Computed example of a mutant assay.
Amino acid sequence: MSLLTIINDDIKTAMKAKDKNTLAVLRMLKAAFQNEKIKTGNELSEDEELTLLSREMKQRRESLIEFKKANREDLVEQTNQAIKLVGKYLPQQLSEEELQVIISNAVSEVNATSMKDFGKVMGIVMPVIKGKAEGNVINRLVKDQLN
């Protein structure tokens, strides 16, 4: 079952429960899926769905940081709820230890020895980890291993 189908079902449930906040976030996700579908001109693959959800999650996390800086507690709470809801559709996030193992394997696979090999390592790591960890965490861990 595609994520869009699951989101549509959850929209119906939120409508019946009259949960306006959840409904707003779900409708936003649905719109993002539909816009991406129109842009690509075909049904989204599972990888494309994960990429889209990761992008939406990243936007919310960036917004959360800005709202905290501006002392907008009302928006911080609302954004936290949206992050939890979007996170429900993402695969379980990998721990740093699990990420370290994947990154170590990639480093040894390409015989990476310095930061010059950063792109090669990231090229191997990102398809494996797609949607299962934040890009900035992966970036930091790869740099730590290459230094």
Rank of each mutant, 00 (worst) to 15 (best):
Glu77Ala: 14
Leu50Ile: 03
Asp144Tyr: 14
Asn105Arg: 02
Met126Glu: 15
Glu109Asn: 04
Phe67Pro: 02
Lys18Ile: 07
Ile102Asn: 13
Gln81Trp: 11
Glu36Val: 09
Ile124Lys: 02
Asn21Trp: 04
Arg27Thr: 10
Gln100Ala: 11
Asp117Tyr: 05
Gln34Cys: 06
Ile38Phe: 11
Lys39Trp: 08
Gln34His: 07
Arg140Met: 14
Lys37Leu: 07
Glu97Ala: 15
Met126Val: 14
Met115Cys: 03
Val128Leu: 00
Leu141Asp: 12
Lys69Gly: 01
Gln100Phe: 12
Lys88Gly: 11
Lys84Gln: 12
Gly131Phe: 03
Arg72Thr: 00
Asp47Trp: 00
Leu53Gly: 11
Asn139Leu: 13
Leu29Thr: 10
Asn80His: 10
Lys88Phe: 15
Lys30Thr: 06
Glu62Pro: 02
Met126Tyr: 06
Lys120Asp: 15
Val125Phe: 06
Gln78Glu: 15
Thr22Ser: 13
Gly41Leu: 09
Lys132Pro: 13
Lys88Thr: 15
Gln92His: 08
Ile129His: 01
Arg72Leu: 01
Val142Ile: 15
Val128Tyr: 00
Ser95Tyr: 10
Val121Asp: 12
Gly87Gln: 12
Ile65Thr: 02
Ala32Phe: 03
Met122Ile: 03
Val110Thr: 09
Glu43Arg: 00
Glu98Val: 05
Ser63Ile: 06
Lys37Glu: 14
Asp144Met: 14
Lys39Val: 08
Met28Asp: 01
Ala17Gly: 08
Ser95Ala: 08
Arg140Gln: 15
Lys116Tyr: 08
Ser63Met: 01
Ser63Lys: 09
Lys58Trp: 00
Ile83Pro: 08
Gly123Lys: 00
Lys116Val: 14
Gln93Leu: 09
Glu48Tyr: 01
Ser114Val: 06
Gln92Val: 14
Ser114Lys: 04
Leu50Arg: 00
Ile102Gln: 09
Val142Gly: 11
Val125Tyr: 05
Asn136Leu: 07
Ala106Lys: 01
Lys58Thr: 03
Glu96Tyr: 12
Asn42Lys: 04
Gly135His: 12
Ala106Met: 06
Leu26Thr: 12
Val125Ala: 07
Asn111Pro: 09
Gln93Asn: 12
Pro127Trp: 03
Phe67Tyr: 04
Lys130His: 07
Asn71Lys: 11
Met126Ile: 12
Ala31Asn: 12
Ile102Leu: 08
Arg61Glu: 00
Leu90Asn: 15
Leu50Glu: 12
Ser108Pro: 05
Ser45Ile: 01
Ala106Asp: 15
Lys69Cys: 00
Thr51Ala: 09
Lys37Gly: 07
Lys18Pro: 02
Gly123Asn: 07
Gln100Asn: 13
Leu53Met: 04
Val86Glu: 05
Glu62Gln: 02
Ile11Met: 08
